[in-house]
């Protein structure tokens, strides 16, 4: 059984300008020990997808349709309390900006110990020991002393390690990482990704990695799902996605990544802007910007088609005939 199955997830935010379908029929699965990347530009619905899984969408936003099956249990049918018990102990999440993700008024040891006590009910002293251990597991030197420090006494990379330590302190099976390296500089990025990867292997974690950085995807992920305007437009194993990108948007993204050793005078770009979610064009949302668009792209609902059954490579483009 897959660790996480998301099926036709639809998350909407009512606004004055109309209902915004931030996530519009998203489906994917994550196996134990697998890393799935959710790739897309700002506003494509990546983070909202992640928050929807944990039931953390702030009202008036709400999940309008779909299923979220964790370990076979439907998270959408759970009570508030049941869902709260799942957060942290089964599914944990880390955030983009480690500078603001820690409470400035408590030491990091206290914060991790608090998370531990929340789910295990261990006495204070034992929770503290556990906190120090989890700091050690994310390779923070001198964890005993570090645990007594406040967040402002640490660098960004250190704080992101602390966030990971806290997220994993209750041994969840699924880690959602929302752009965990975006706020860090490049050398630290590599260290953090390596750390997440090591912990994934050690603990057989499922990881949902949200990013807009295709370099990160290539380095760390097994599969990648590309999102555009609230929909997944392509989902494939990473090697396949990079070798045979099948959606024009994926190709556009890949072309716009600078490469060492390639003598481009100009970086390729995708013309135009992401459409307003309140005013999506009929047919394919990418059609107005797509260099290959035809008349049939601008009508009806475009379905996902399977390009390759064994690898489950799917693409949302009418111009790719399904090869069964």
């Amino acid at each position: 059984m897959p660790l996480l199955v998301v099926e036709n997830l639809e998350t909407r935010f009512p606004t004055r300008a109309g209902d915004v379908p931030a996530v519009n029929g998203v489906s994917f699965t994550i196996e134990q020990g697998e890393t799935l990347a959710l790739v897309g530009e700002s506003g494509s619905g990546k983070s909202v997808t992640a928050l929807s899984i944990l039931g953390l969408i702030a009202p008036p936003g709400h999940i309008a349709a779909g299923q979220i099956l964790y370990d076979g249990k439907n998270l959408r049918e759970m009570s508030k309390e049941e869902l709260r018990a799942i957060r942290g102990s089964e599914i944990a999440m880390i955030f983009q900006d480690p500078m603001t993700s820690l409470n400035p008024v408590f030491t990091i040891g206290e914060q991790i110990a608090e998370a531990v006590r929340l789910h295990t009910g261990l006495p204070r002293a034992q929770a503290w020991t556990k906190a120090v251990e989890s700091l050690e597991s994310v390779a923070i030197p001198d964890p005993g002393r570090r645990a007594k420090q406040y967040p402002h006494e640490m660098s960004g990379g250190m704080r992101q390690r602390v966030m990971i330590a806290m997220a994993l302190s209750c041994e969840p099976k699924l880690l959602i990482a929302d752009e965990p390296t975006t706020a860090l500089d490049v050398t630290i990025q590599a260290q953090i990704l390596e750390l997440i990867n090591r912990l994934r292997i050690e603990r057989n974690l499922g990881v949902l990695l949200i990013t807009h950085d295709l370099g990160v995807v290539a380095e760390t992920c097994d599969r990648a799902a590309v999102m555009y305007a609230g929909k997944i437009v392509e989902n494939a194993p990473v090697t396949r996605l990079f070798a045979e990108p099948s959606h024009p948007y994926t190709r556009g993204l890949l072309a716009s990544v600078p490469r060492v050793g390639r003598n481009d005078t100009r970086l390729a770009t995708i013309e135009g802007m992401v459409p307003k979610l309140t005013n999506l064009p009929p047919g394919c949302a990418f059609a107005p910007r797509c260099p290959e668009a035809e008349a049939k792209c601008r009508e009806g609902v475009i379905q996902l088609v399977t390009l390759d059954k064994p690898t489950n490579h799917v693409v949302r483009c009418v111009r790719r005939p399904s090869k069964e």
Binding site: L54, L56, R84, A85, I86, R87, G88, S89, A92, M93, I94, F95, Q96, D97, T100, S101, L102, N103, P104, V105, F106, E114, A115, L118, H119, M163, M166, A167, C170
Partner: peptide, 26 residues
């Protein structure tokens, strides 16, 4: 709206704990 409040919620903290430990002192 601070990230650490969302982070605490993502770790399964209840309203009371979020109010007393995370919001009030800040």
């Amino acid at each position: 709206e601070y990230d650490f409040v969302t982070a605490a919620r993502a770790l399964g903290a209840n309203d009371f704990r979020i109010i007393v430990r995370h919001i009030l002192p800040n």
